[in-house]
Write a protein that binds this DNA or RNA. Structure first.
Lengths: 113, 113
DNA sequence: GGAAAAGTTAAGCGACCGCTTGACTAATGC
DNA sequence: GCATTAGTCAAGCGGTCGCTTAACTTTTCC
């Protein structure tokens, strides 16, 4: 029960940490347009193949992508569930706050809390 | 034009970087339930007041919160627009990929790209 | 079979991050 | 007016992060 909450926390940590890096977000944008190999993902970025691979490992550990190696090429594809999870967290925080504003009438007394 | 894109990139970097830290996300969750002082935000977290302040500065620079000081207490409140921006980016990447899957019929040939 | 292509692993390095401590300021309450 | 409360600023420290290089493996192509 508590264990489950901690697991969720850790996965959330990995997820948002993965999303924090600009080059990783660039990879995600590329992958939103279709699967790609490690080479293809590294190409447009200002870094070595090894560096790109490290980013991909972070993305895979966070659940944002899934990869599959066939022959000598590893193909990466987006995993929508992980992105949806981050989306859901943001949505929840935002709407909770917005609903609160609505309940207060947006202009009425703010001398609570 | 290009300048604008770079600005957007930088603000996106700040935004996702702000969201990456677990304690900062805890602060956001707290603030989704209503405004709070620096003290109140620091209290439940395992850190000094000074550390909490640093987190709040990151959150404010990223646009996630807005703060206002009256007397000796600084009150922090959530800024929905920033959260919505992160939400929108995630939504765009995810749906672009999901639409692509739909277009491919989910099972048909995947020998493109 | 040998060269090229694609990826993998490990070590190391500089920069950045989160946090602490300590000194300080400013408002509040008695 | 003096102690308390709330916040601010700066320096410093250890750990993490992103990246590089170098050595290596595996697959593919001729």
């Amino acid at each position: 029960m508590v264990k489950h909450m901690l697991d969720h926390q850790k996965s959330s940590d990995r997820l948002f940490h993965a999303l924090a890096e600009p080059n990783r977000r660039a990879m995600i944008e590329r992958l939103s347009r279709g699967p790609a190999s490690v080479k293809e993902l590294a190409e447009p970025l200002p870094m070595s193949l090894a560096a790109a691979l490290q980013h991909l490992q972070v993305l895979e550990n966070s659940g944002v992508i899934r990869t599959e190696k066939v022959g000598r090429v590893r193909t990466c594809r987006l995993e929508p569930a992980a992105l949806r999870q981050a989306e859901a967290w943001l949505h929840q925080q935002r709407t909770a706050w917005e609903k609160r504003l609505d309940r207060l009438g947006d202009v009425l007394d703010d001398d609570n809390d």
